[in-house]
Amino acid sequence: MYTYLKYDQADGVGTITLNRPEVYNALNDELTFELQDVLKHIHRDMEVRVVVLTGEGKAFCSGQDLKSGSPDVKRSFIDSLHKRYNPIIRALRTLNKPVICRLNGVAAGAGCSLALACDLIVAAEEAMLTEVFVNIGLVLDSGSTYFLPRLVGSAKAFELATMGTRVKAPDAYQMGLVNKVVPMSELDEAVAFYTDYYAKAPTKAVALMKKMLNKAGHSSLDDMLDYEAYCQEIAGNSEDYKEGVNAFLEKRKPNFTGN
């Protein structure tokens, strides 16, 4: 179905694999549009309760494929971002299920933004993140100006952005950029720890909390108190809430269906 990515679904887990290993999964036009398409499909597929995003081969994603066009040819960067990259970032952040980045290698430029847009990042020790834009005279894009200062603070974000610093996975963990770092041989097991949990979690409640936490970054306390009440009304009328209460009363593990 897809040419530049692979998509697999099993046991409630949808796995997207960027599949241009010969160029470290650099993003060309076709791959960005395929990413948009698969995320739309996942949003509608209620069988999928958690998503994994990763890269084929040694890299996660090296960013924009600079060899796909000439710097001497006039192009519209604003059109490229509005049509190609921004829809992907919005889709990841508004997806009604958690997205786990399986960071198997370098994430550079827009590839770094792609990783930071996920809800959780599980990284191999060999992995690295770098906001490499400054090295070719560009600025951060694809959401990095939103995610980076929220994760590491404004001063550190300025340093990482303007110096294009290469941050190795253990250092990224200390900064709060990633959730977990393990040897490459243990990466799949570490990702499975999260997918096993979220595939059986109350998916509607998790999706609501994702929306709430996204909103909290630019809202007042009064706004969030009202929004919490609104979301709790939705969660409280779900089948999973009924199941959770019954399981508690019956002293058993709940069997959440995501409804």
Rank of each mutant, 00 (worst) to 15 (best):
M1G: 14
M1T: 13
T3Q: 15
L5W: 03
D8P: 00
D8A: 12
V13T: 15
R20D: 03
Y24L: 13
A26E: 13
V38T: 05
K40M: 10
D45Y: 03
L53D: 06
T54V: 10
G55P: 09
L66Q: 11
K67R: 11
G69K: 09
S70I: 05
R75Q: 13
S76E: 00
R84M: 07
Y85F: 00
N86M: 09
N86F: 03
N86G: 00
N86Q: 08
P87T: 04
I89N: 00
R93Y: 03
L95S: 00
K97Y: 02
C101I: 11
G105E: 04
S113E: 01
L120G: 00
A124Q: 01
A124W: 04
E126V: 10
A127H: 04
M128S: 08
V134E: 05
I136M: 10
G137T: 08
V139H: 06
L140V: 03
L140N: 10
D141Q: 04
F147G: 00
T165C: 05
R166K: 13
V167I: 15
Y173G: 01
M175R: 04
G176I: 10
V182P: 10
E186A: 15
F193T: 15
T195S: 12
Y197N: 07
K200Y: 07
P202V: 13
A205F: 11
V206L: 07
A207S: 15
L208V: 14
K210Q: 12
M212Y: 14
L213D: 08
S219C: 08
L221C: 06
D222C: 02
L225K: 11
A229C: 04
A229R: 13
I234N: 04
G236A: 08
E239S: 11
Y241T: 15
K242F: 07
G244S: 09
V245T: 08
N246V: 02
K251V: 14
T257M: 09
T257A: 12
G258M: 06
